[in-house]
């Protein structure tokens, strides 16, 4: 009987007007934000790891489509997204060099999704199906089997601050996931162009 209970809860969660209102509120607030800057701490959880791998960095977004995702420890790298595409730079031998050895479609898909979230765009017809199990959480599940091999689902935990995401959990499977916690969130501040060019 438990499977029936879970199915009912899931169905009610998705169709619950209160949860739909919460998603709409988030989307409306996010659409008004012109820029976001924040620090983050990322925890990588894998069965092989004796303890989670901790990374730290920061990101900034400037509407409509400029994005910087930077790791500061333990590896220095900068990923820039602009109308030209996505470019990653890694710090090697004292300076940043372009990392063009490995194309990572999975990473690029997540980045493009993140820009959509920052704009408040959640389109249930896109590559991800959207589900709201509770008012402060949005769950995205890939529609394409190819993507589902890399990412099983993404959970966005919403902040009490309108239009802001507290944390993101990216599940590769039940035991392998990445948790990103945001802090020092700064909204609508001026973000200089220098943040979005080669470091």
């Amino acid at each position: 009987m438990q499977w029936l209970l879970f199915f009912w809860i899931g169905l009610v969660g998705f169709n619950n007007p209160a949860f739909a209102d919460a998603l709409q509120s988030f989307q409306t607030a996010a659409a008004e934000i012109t820029s976001i800057q924040a620090d983050f701490v990322q925890e990588k959880h894998l069965p092989i790891l004796k303890q989670p791998l901790i990374s730290a960095g920061r990101f900034c977004f400037r509407r409509p489509n400029l994005f910087r995702w930077e790791y500061q420890t333990p590896v220095q790298s900068v990923m820039l997204m602009n109308p030209s595409g996505i470019t990653r730079y890694v710090f090697s031998q004292g300076h940043f060099v372009k990392d063009d050895g490995i194309r990572l479609e999975g990473v690029q898909v997540i980045l493009q999704q993140m820009i959509g979230w920052l704009r408040g765009q959640f389109d249930n017809q896109s590559d991800f199906a959207i589900h709201c199990p509770r008012p402060d959480q949005i769950v995205l599940s890939p529609r394409q089997p190819g993507m589902a091999k890399m990412i099983k689902r993404i959970e966005l935990n919403l902040s009490a601050q309108a239009g802001v995401i507290d944390s993101v959990f990216i599940y590769e499977d039940q035991t392998a996931y990445t948790a990103i916690h945001f802090k020092q969130v700064n909204i609508d501040a001026d973000v200089p162009d220098t943040e979005f060019v080669k470091p």
């Binding site: 990588k44 791998l53 590896v75 790298s77 990572l104 997540i110 392998a176």
Partner: peptide
Amino acid sequence: HCVLMSVEGLVLFE
């Protein structure tokens, strides 16, 4: 037992 992953944490090889 080895794993390679991107800096972003995406497992590329295990």
